[in-house]
């Protein structure tokens, strides 16, 4: 006879197995980050011998050293500069275009929009080769502006697509009311459309911010000048030096990963929304 107690204990057992599985994966997700922070608090002398998870002496001065002597302070500021200017650029430029694609009629509208969508779908794995040539010709290689413009272009298509889809679904009553009150097109875009688009703009901001902060290959081909390099590029260079200072490298990695993790925790809702909506449109 199978009793209620049997089913209850079976259910508990199944749940237990599931939780053990989930917790095991959780640990493998978090542990490398924990080890990174732990290693960043050791010294070059102890890091190769001391395998303790929590070092006996915590050398927080590694962060000061990485920030100042390792140059990560400058790289960090470079990354902040690139991320904020690219995201600001994308928000303004893509929302202007998406609004026009959604609301206005003008010759060439459909073909232009189609080109943006096609760019989103067509992968060109070697696109950094002609980009390098182009930037050389324009004297934009080894400049912050060159990198920023390239990265704005990278984020443009998807952002326009997301925003246009949103504007298409947005009722026009508010905009009509503003027009009757004598508001100009630009005024309606800025005062009416953009504030209404806040939820999508959040998705656009988060995704582009992560993308720029984590970008490596364009930074690799554009920058030879150390003073202009963002964090990702600097980390690989730092690791490639003849004698890697591992505690400083780990401190650099922590400095690079921390802002992303903080932003992720704060904006997780928008990231889930972006992944699931972005993935399902095909």
């Amino acid at each position: 006879m199978r009793t209620i107690a049997y089913y209850k204990s079976k259910k508990i057992a199944v749940n237990l197995i599931i939780h053990i599985f989930l917790i095991a994966v959780t640990i493998t997700c978090l542990f490398p980050l924990f080890w990174m922070v732990s290693s960043s608090l050791k010294t070059q002398g102890t890091i190769f011998k001391d395998m303790s998870l929590i070092p006996k002496e915590l050398h927080f001065e590694n962060y000061v050293l990485a920030w100042k002597e390792g140059g990560f302070g400058r790289y960090f500021l470079n990354s902040i500069l690139y991320t904020t200017s690219v995201v600001a650029g994308i928000i303004i430029i893509s929302s202007l275009a998406a609004y026009a694609f959604s609301r206005f009629k003008f010759p060439g509208r459909n073909i232009l929009f189609f080109m943006f969508i096609a760019a989103m779908m067509i992968p060109i794995p070697g696109s950094f080769v002609p980009l390098y040539v182009l930037l050389n010709k324009l004297h934009l290689r080894n400049t912050a502006l060159g990198y920023i413009l390239c990265m704005v272009n990278v984020g443009l298509s998807t952002s326009i697509f997301l925003l246009k889809t949103f504007f298409d679904k947005l009722p026009r009553e508010l905009e009509d009311a503003a027009r009757i009150d004598g508001c100009s097109k630009i005024g309606i875009w800025w005062h009416v459309a953009l504030p209404l688009a806040k939820p999508v703009l959040a998705v656009v901001v988060v995704f582009n911010a992560l993308n720029v902060w984590n970008e490596y290959v364009l930074a690799l081909i554009i920058f030879d000048n150390k003073n202009l390099m963002p964090l990702q590029r600097a980390l690989v260079m730092f690791q490639g030096e003849f004698l890697t200072n591992y505690p400083l490298l780990m401190a650099g990695l922590t400095i690079t990963a921390l802002p992303i993790i903080i932003i992720y925790f704060m904006m997780q809702k928008y990231i889930v929304k972006g992944v699931t909506s972005g993935a399902l449109f095909g």
């Binding site: 959780t26 490398p32 080890w35 490596y216 690989v236 992720y264």
Partner: peptide
């Protein structure tokens, strides 16, 4: 769990690669 499992994807490939290389 959803919060935790999406941490590796938001990290950069450089960070992930260098940390794992060290491990």
């Amino acid at each position: 769990y959803r919060l935790i499992f999406f941490i590796p994807p938001v990290l950069s490939e450089v960070v992930v690669g260098l940390v794992w290389q060290w491990i």
